[in-house]
Structures are given as C-alpha cells and as structure tokens.
Design a protein around this nucleic acid. Structure first.
Length: 160
DNA sequence: GCCAACGTTGGC
DNA sequence: GCCAACGTTGGC
C-alpha cells in the first residue's frame, strides 16, 4: 500500500512525544486505543513507513509536537487483557483474546516549535483536515499528503 | 468546570 | 433493531 499519513492524539501527562523519544530506540507500542474506527485504521491501513503526527490534546498548548514512523504493523493489544492495565477490557479478557490492536511507532522528527491547534485553525489551506472538523474526537485520523506537507514545513521538523 | 458531540450499553 | 441513558472526549 502507498504511504499514508496520520495524526495520533495523546495526552501530554499520560504519554507525551518526549516520552516516546525517551523510549529505547525512540520506539514504543501505541497501546490503549479502544475505539473501533481507530483500531480499524491501524489494522487495515497502517503500513510500515507510514508517517504520523503526534498531537497533544487536553493540555495548555494543544497541538502537534513531532513526527513518528510506523515500525511495526498492527498486532493484538495485550494490555486489554491485563486487569491492572489502565485500558483493561473485560469483554476481551472474558474471551482470552484481545479485540484491540496496536502498532509500534518510532519518533523521527521534533517540531522546532509545536504547531498549535489555534494556528492550524487560521489556515484556509487546511480546509478539510479531520482535526479541524467540528465534533471530531477520533484519536487516530487520516492526513492527506497535501496537508501533511503544509504542516510539516510549518513545524520546521528536525531529525532526532 | 462547562458542555457539545458522539460512542456504548442495555432494556425492551 | 430501536433508542434513552449514560460515559467519555476534548476544546474552551
């Protein structure tokens, strides 16, 4: 499949872009996704080498902080089976099989300055970007290659 | 803290 | 399968 571009949300105080950088090889599993649409994106459409904007929600400076790359395609999110895990899923545990999936991502570039949501909102050329659509709450979203280029350049992304 | 949007649950 | 109630997300 051709390379695709994505945006994934995270809460800064739960798992920030810096937390990802600090993982061994800047790589970690993106677990805890408990929404079917988001899971299906990972399961059906995430391919090795796909690029991902990492976005911090629910924080003071809401926006995009860096870029990551898919380094392992979808596999079962076993944290759903762990009663002590934050995103434990009783229904999965009942069956002994996780219905949720995760991918591994590696941080590759950091934005020189975070690209704030408030800035993105002022750019007419980003019309149609899922993130800017009203009422959207999906934690994994598609980004078109055109929008990706615009945002990527805006952030003056630097290699890690 | 508020609240709109929207996903999930569960009774029928 | 419908849909009301409830829970969560996430910007403000």
């Amino acid at each position: 499949m051709a390379k695709q571009y994505w945006l994934m949300k995270t809460e800064e105080d739960v798992f920030s872009f810096d937390d990802l950088i600090n993982c061994p090889d800047h790589t970690d599993s993106w677990d805890g996704i408990r929404n079917y649409q988001a899971r299906n994106f990972m399961r059906d459409e995430f391919s090795l080498g796909d690029k991902v904007f990492i976005y911090h929600s629910n924080t003071k400076d809401i926006g995009i902080y860096g870029v990551a790359e898919v380094v392992k395609e979808a596999y079962p999110d076993h944290t759903a089976l762990d009663p002590k895990a934050k995103y434990f899923d009783a229904k999965s545990a009942e069956k002994g099989v996780s219905r949720w999936m995760m991918v591994d991502v590696k941080a590759t570039h950091r934005m020189t300055k975070p690209i704030l949501l408030s800035d993105l909102k002022t750019m007419p050329e980003l019309d149609g970007l899922a993130l800017l659509q009203r009422g959207q709450r999906l934690s994994i979203q598609k980004v078109s290659s055109e929008h990706w280029k615009i945002i990527y350049q805006l952030g003056k992304a630097k290699k890690i």
